[in-house]
Write a protein that binds this DNA or RNA. Structure first.
Lengths: 150, 150
DNA sequence: CTTGAAAAAAAGTGCCC
DNA sequence: GGGCACTTTTTTTCAAG
């Protein structure tokens, strides 16, 4: 991981649809050397995957909600079970167990409020090990990037 | 946006490095028709961009932190100013103003604790309009996807 | 062991139907 | 939407630093 690798990763985190030849010019390498590096970064797992990022509003998923969850039983296996359960929901884009006052935090992409209602009923209803949950909605998005600083 | 578009988007949200010919076969279209659709989805802005997603741990950013923020002055222009300020930080990957008990939520990607210390001092120190903030750390990641359900 | 030039293979592109 | 000729890009090969 030298300066050129970092530059490559930075560029590809912004736009991975650029051609290899293009990237090569940008980092001052020949196309073949550049490709070798990209492949190495990929097989080393530093580049996890290349994906298309959609515009949520245009894809009909304009509502972003954040739910913080307090579990009834906090043990590790219960937390894990909870995360597995919520991960199975397509509307859940991020699910974390966290330190602090609450046990978990979920990030949701919803079509409308009805979807949220159905989802909370399904996930946090009877016999779900959820003691309490707090829902907030995203009003304004100041930043939303997949890029990691290098 | 018909069934084929949705299928294409679904595939590209998982792996956008697949070739057009490959995607065409998958959705049962000729390469030229498929490419036309992809271009249309792109120029319509439904596909916002194509990016490389890195493995945070392997890229040296293993610490994920979530900060909820309560502002001193809650007016819209103050919230906006706050979001603009935090968005400028490379370690901040997501920044939202939210409904509910707190005003904003930040998602951070950090190298270590020292970086967090420096960042909170810089963002929430003297004269920052931040009344209170609560930091939690991600213990386990149950799910983390950029894919939006269709 | 890494680089770069050039050939070969594959993919993308645009025009026509 | 599909077919086909044309262009561009990717990928392999191989010689050189």
């Amino acid at each position: 991981m030298d300066r050129i690798d970092r530059k490559l990763l930075k560029l590809m985190q912004e736009d991975a649809s650029r051609t290899n030849a293009d990237l090569a010019t940008e980092v001052g390498l020949s196309p073949s050397s550049c490709l070798r590096r990209i492949r190495r970064l990929r097989s080393a797992g530093i580049i996890d995957r290349v994906v298309a990022v959609l515009n949520p509003a245009k894809a009909g998923r304009g509502v972003k909600a954040i739910i913080t969850v307090e579990l009834e039983r906090h043990g590790e296996q219960y937390v894990r079970r909870f995360l597995d359960m919520v991960a199975a929901e397509a509307a859940v884009t991020q699910a974390y167990s966290v330190s602090g006052a609450t046990d978990a935090l979920l990030m949701l992409r919803l079509k409308d409020m009805d979807e949220l209602d159905a989802l909370t009923e399904r996930l946090f209803g009877e016999g779900s090990n959820v003691a309490r949950y707090y829902t907030s909605f995203v009003i304004r998005t100041g930043k939303e990037t997949t890029a990691i600083p290098l």
